[in-house]
């Protein structure tokens, strides 16, 4: 007998309209409860957490509710001597948090409040001979870090400081039989990783190297009967994977290959109508991470009450335009 499809059922009582005000209140409150258990336990990713929350607020046109000065001061305190940023004060520097820091600074148009030259120095020091990037000095290699490096440099307009051709070659060496990409050469395709690699290739203008028919087909097959998208075959749907698949499809010009109405319905059903915020799946606990990706997904799907999102940087399109970044999507 065949294996049953893994999916969720959306109940009739699930939210069907966008609860923008609740989401804004949820995010605004999240950052203010600094001695909350949840908040303290996630300190190891604080910088990214702040990027998720602030970008979500900006997409909802409510960024002014957040304390800009406090955020910038925090970011300044997270920059290390080497130029990289840690997730929080006293935490070790890493490309993941360096990108989040630069994204927040760009959101606030405040790049000049940190040492940009040092950031460039940090990122270039992490590129290896094969074009790959270490995430930090300890040497883990992953295509996520190739994206972080390139996205970061693009935001500060310093792409020519690394060997772009080699970086592209490394990303291509992680391409798979299904047209997707994995963490390292040999690794299985995964939508999060695909988003990173497709985004990286978009930033450096090499999208023609992707087999868009093959990859687009694999990506649109991520949509399940519930409307939600999964990250790999035979997995459950999830709001964050919905974003990664959707943004990748958008970048390669195949967004219309999935059923938009069904996906909208799924994302809306992942809202919590009591607390605000989005969860990974209907009925689960919400968090800022899925809240950003829920909103960003709805924006790509054409919801006009949310600002237009840039599919590569997951930031408002107007911010990317202001940063002077031009990209040709397919």
């Amino acid at each position: 007998m065949g294996t049953p499809i893994k999916d969720v059922v959306i109940s009739d009582s699930a939210p069907k309209s966008l609860l923008l005000d609740k989401h804004a209140d949820y995010i605004a409150a999240y950052g203010s409860k600094k001695d909350d258990y949840e908040y303290i336990m996630t300190e190891f990713l604080r910088m990214s957490g702040m990027y998720w929350g602030l970008t979500a607020m900006d997409l909802m046109s409510q960024l002014e509710r957040m304390n800009k000065d406090e955020v910038i001061e925090f970011i300044q305190q997270c920059q290390h001597e080497c130029g990289g940023f840690g997730a929080s004060i006293g935490h070790d520097p890493h490309l993941l948090y360096t990108l989040s820091a630069v994204q927040i600074l760009t959101l606030y148009d405040s790049q000049q409040s940190v040492n940009i030259d040092k950031i460039v120095e940090y990122i270039t020091s992490l590129q290896q001979d094969d074009g790959s990037f270490y995430g930090d000095k300890w040497g883990e290699v992953d295509t996520r870090f190739s994206f972080c490096a390139v996205a970061c440099l693009a935001l500060i307009n310093q792409l020519d400081t690394i060997n772009v051709d080699k970086a592209v070659q490394f990303v291509l060496s992680c391409m798979n039989f299904d047209g997707g990409f994995g963490c390292r050469p040999g690794s299985e395709s995964h939508s999060g990783q695909i988003y990173c690699c497709v985004g990286m290739l978009a930033i450096v203008g090499r999208l023609h190297l992707i087999n868009t028919d093959m990859l687009g087909w694999w990506l649109c097959e991520r949509q399940l009967p519930s409307g939600g998208l999964n990250g790999r075959p035979e997995k459950l749907p999830d709001v964050c994977y919905s974003w990664w698949v959707l943004s990748s499809l958008k970048i390669i010009g195949k967004l219309h290959w999935i059923n938009k109405d069904k996906l909208v319905k799924f994302i809306l059903a992942c809202q919590d109508d009591e607390t605000g915020g989005f969860a990974d799946r209907p009925g689960d606990m919400v968090d800022p991470f899925h809240t950003l990706f829920g909103l960003a997904g709805l924006s790509l799907l054409g919801d006009e009450s949310i600002k237009q999102v840039n599919p590569v940087f997951c930031m408002p399109e107007e911010v990317i335009r202001r940063a002077g970044i031009k990209m040709d999507l397919l």
Partner: peptide
């Protein structure tokens, strides 16, 4: 054995090559 199993079909597409 299981015609609904997408894994095998994706693999088959690869075998056909490009």
């Amino acid at each position: 054995t299981d015609p609904d199993d997408q894994s095998a079909w994706f693999y088959h597409r690869w075998l056909l090559g490009r």
